[in-house]
Design a protein around this nucleic acid. Structure first.
Lengths: 136, 136
DNA sequence: TTATTATCCTACTTACCCGATAGGGTATTA
DNA sequence: TAATACCCTATCGGGTAAGTAGGATAATAA
């Protein structure tokens, strides 16, 4: 199941991508528009900023803004930052690989082979979908 | 992430599918071969039996056995029984649909549209993979 | 300079779920 | 009737998700 953190994060990013100007948007504004608790949203946007997806500006008129062009932000990036590995098991993860304790030979493991297929499919969807696609 | 319950369940099912005879296989036997704790495996096999995927036989020489032909057991069935919904969000689930609280219009929700794509892809993999495929 | 705005950051709480274990009960068979 | 092996419920520790609290810090405008 997708965490609410990721869900809210994508919604916030989409909201930002839909803005006509590049001006910062306050947490409060995004919170109201997308029905997300201010405090929880705050922590999510902070994560996105620390991972180079958002920029921020303090003080009056401050808020968050996209650093990159929406079409240069693939969902793989967003998912990895907010949700973690895209793979369903560590042993089929590209970026967070880890061997299974119980499995003597990965190539002969039925679950491994199945989950590689699922990962490849999901990866393709996330790679080919950018923030620009979602904000239309 | 895939739960160990599902992972072990698939491994056990694959092991059963590889048996040459239809004779019951004891929990202990599967446990040793697949490196799964006896007690945990017990609860998993029980779930599979209650959901009509396995049959069982008590007493000496007893154990668990597949009810259906492996090629008639698609992974969708196994996944739904052990892991739950295949969809990543209730609002894109076919069998466990639930509306989101925060979302006024699903059709306009970016996350919704994205996750439908992911679900469709995963569904296709699970539908087209049977226990027979995995046990080869 | 000072009040206001809004992000920054840490810590905490609450609830839930996973993985595993314990300890019996029950049915079957040799 | 003893041994085997499934049947079933309860429990527990640890971890994580979701959200909350409260103040520190920086920037802006009056």
């Amino acid at each position: 199941m997708l965490s609410k953190k990721t869900k809210y994060g994508i919604k916030a990013l989409t909201f930002l991508a839909r803005q006509e100007t590049k001006n910062p948007v306050s947490i409060a504004t995004i919170s109201k528009s997308e029905n997300i608790s201010v405090k929880f949203l705050e922590s999510i946007l902070l994560t996105l900023r620390k991972n180079g997806i958002l920029g921020s500006k303090k003080g009056i008129g401050g808020g968050y803004y996209l650093i990159k062009n929406p079409k240069d932000v693939p969902m793989t990036m967003v998912m990895r930052v907010l949700e973690g590995p895209i793979a369903m098991m560590p042993c089929v993860s590209l970026n967070y690989y880890e061997k299974c304790d119980d499995c003597p030979d990965e190539d002969k493991c039925a679950v491994h082979r199945l989950m590689i297929q699922v990962r490849d499919n999901s990866l393709e969807v996330f790679r080919n979908t950018t923030l620009a696609d979602l904000s239309n």
